[in-house]
Simulated assay, not measured.
Amino acid sequence: MKPVIIGISGSILVNKGDTFSGYKRAYVNQDYVESVLRAGAIPFIIPFNEDLEITKLMVEKVDGVILSGGHDVEPSNYGENPLMKIGEVFPQRDDFDMTIYNTAIELKKPIFGICRGFQIINVVNGGTLYQDLSYADFVKLKHDQRDNPAQVTHSVELEEGTFLFDILGKNAKVNSFHHQIVKDVANGFKVVAKSPDGVVESIQKIDEDTFVIGVQWHPEMLSSTYKDFQNIFDEFVKIVEKRKNM
């Protein structure tokens, strides 16, 4: 049986402060690559580009997709103007990630969204975001820990009968690096996890033709230290393999 190939959406890193200042590099964080490798799959970086037809062809070559983290989602994608506290946006990458998502859905390939990728999943399906935590008056916890990505901070409560419940159980502690959160959950998606102050931390849509999960935290940054978070990647790869061979 051929190994499973997992496509990881890439971004652009602009070099600063040395001989090649301003030079653009295609990249993903190494944690994504290593998490996929430990799960027994082949990681394939889908490099950011603005030729959406080429992007579609690249998605055709992989068996499943991870939508990685990064910039804020441009608010026009969910019908809003930018507010004062929005962070840096990258509209061209929004188009790129949404093309990856839509192509994978059309081809019935499983999708795993992480942080920004989770937000992209919500937005591309008609959901909305709070552009900053301060715009949601119910938020009480610190959702941007800012330090030590391999450290868990706040807890989440998971819904029984969901993909992640079977891996993490009823309660888990996660890391947290975000200043935007889900406002309106996209139609057709089930809320999988929430933090104690009510922030949506995970959603899923799973049926015969579709397997989509998204998490607001960064399990790839925890997977080398915490077995449960590596298990998310392990089980995702198993799903990809099973659906590939259906």
Rank of each mutant, 00 (worst) to 15 (best):
I181T: 08
G188R: 13
F138V: 02
D31L: 00
S76D: 10
E220R: 07
Y32S: 04
Q230Y: 02
K183I: 01
E201S: 09
G79V: 02
P149R: 06
E201Q: 14
D234A: 00
Q30L: 12
S9I: 12
E34N: 14
F229G: 00
I239W: 03
F211S: 13
N187L: 09
E106M: 08
S21H: 14
F112Q: 01
E160N: 14
M98L: 12
P47R: 07
I100G: 01
P149E: 06
E88W: 12
N245C: 04
D197L: 09
D228I: 11
I5W: 11
K108D: 15
V191M: 07
G127R: 02
N148C: 02
G79C: 06
V185E: 03
I42F: 14
L107Y: 03
V65G: 12
L67N: 07
V123I: 12
G10D: 05
I6C: 03
E60W: 11
F236W: 01
G126T: 11
E157L: 07
G40Y: 06
K61Q: 05
Y27W: 07
S202R: 10
V240N: 00
D63T: 09
S134C: 06
E241H: 13
L67H: 06
V4Q: 12
V185F: 09
N171I: 10
Y27T: 08
D72K: 11
L158K: 05
N15T: 04
S134I: 04
G79E: 10
G198E: 08
P47A: 11
F20R: 09
F233A: 04
Q92M: 15
T55W: 08
P3C: 08
A104R: 03
V123T: 03
F211H: 06
N102F: 07
D31K: 09
L168E: 04
V240D: 01
L13D: 00
Q92K: 15
A193D: 10
R116I: 06
R243C: 14
L13Y: 09
Y130H: 12
A104E: 10
K227N: 04
H218C: 01
V192A: 05
N102D: 15
I120N: 02
V59I: 15
P91A: 12
V152W: 03
R38L: 07
I54V: 14
L129N: 05
G214E: 14
A41Q: 10
A172K: 11
G7D: 01
N148A: 05
L13C: 00
L13I: 01
S195T: 10
V4H: 14
N148M: 01
Q151P: 00
T99E: 15
P82E: 12
L164D: 08
I239P: 02
P91Q: 10
G64K: 04
V182R: 02
M84S: 11
F138Q: 01
L13G: 00
P91D: 10
T153H: 09
I181R: 08
D197V: 03
M58W: 13
G64I: 06
K242Y: 12
K194L: 14
F229N: 00
L129A: 06
I120K: 03
D197G: 08
V36Y: 13
T153K: 09
D197A: 08
N245W: 09
K242E: 14
Q30Y: 13
